[in-house]
């Protein structure tokens, strides 16, 4: 097997980079936004004093965490249209990735919230801060700061799991690699490039996270 530079640089790389930006990266960014926002909402609902809210939230989190992402993606893709909800495959992919990772980030938020010293809660109570201000100004800024590295690591994991979108017909970079690889029978080039692109994106991100961890004193 010989490495074909011309094919690698002039055919595979441009197509794959395009798919990387338009699908892999975009899905990671949008999925992360869903995971970060929904995860926080889940974490807060789970803390609710009303059991009718906290219990089902807990069950939902456990259920999603203990089933595979692939099954969830297929379920959404194949079942949603049956109940009359038709969405583009890419949108379903974002929802699937986002919800799946939200159940993980909700646990991270929970740990962050639990990690805010008791004295901070007591000071907020003593100053009679309304609940919204207590959370928005005192508890969450400290909780999120403490768990930023952990949240960042989930973004990196999600990034590496975007190829699952292939199962629901979203052609990400890995799917493109397979396609142009099989057309030209040059898998070595396409999958090597796919690996390198993932590495080039996630390694700096991981280093950045580690730096952040050190800066935050973990």
């Amino acid at each position: 097997m010989i490495w074909d530079w011309n094919f690698a640089l002039n055919e595979a790389l441009p197509q794959m980079l395009g798919a990387f930006l338009k699908v892999t990266l975009l899905a990671t960014i949008l999925g992360s936004v869903v995971a970060m926002v929904l995860g926080l909402i889940l974490a807060l609902l789970r803390r609710s004093r009303i059991q009718l809210i906290s219990r089902p939230t807990g069950w939902f989190i456990e259920f999603v965490r203990s089933t595979p992402l692939l099954v969830q993606l297929l379920f959404l893709f194949l079942v949603l249209p049956r109940v009359g909800i038709t969405l583009p495959a890419f949108t379903i992919g974002i929802i699937g990735l986002g919800v799946h990772y939200a159940t993980y980030t909700s646990e991270v938020y929970r740990a962050g919230i639990d990690g805010v010293p008791k004295g901070q809660w007591e000071a907020a109570t003593a100053l009679s801060l309304p609940p919204r201000r207590k959370w928005q100004d005192v508890i969450l800024p400290q909780a999120i700061r403490n768990v930023l590295p952990a949240l960042g690591n989930y973004v990196i994991s999600m990034f590496k799991e975007t190829p699952y979108l292939l199962a629901i017909t979203v052609l990400d970079m890995v799917a493109i690699a397979k396609n142009i690889g099989s057309l030209n029978f040059k898998y070595l080039e396409t999958f090597t490039i796919a690996g390198l692109i993932f590495l080039a994106a996630s390694y700096p991100a991981a280093v950045l996270m580690r730096k952040l961890e050190i800066r935050l004193g973990h």
Partner: peptide, 26 residues
């Protein structure tokens, strides 16, 4: 008003904001 053994200032706020937060919002 209570003053605690461990101060319990809000570390994410500057000194002035620590003092004005509750008068404004409470």
């Amino acid at each position: 008003g209570m003053v605690f053994q461990q101060f319990n200032l809000f570390p994410n706020m500057k000194v002035l904001r620590n003092v004005t937060e509750a008068p404004i919002y409470s």
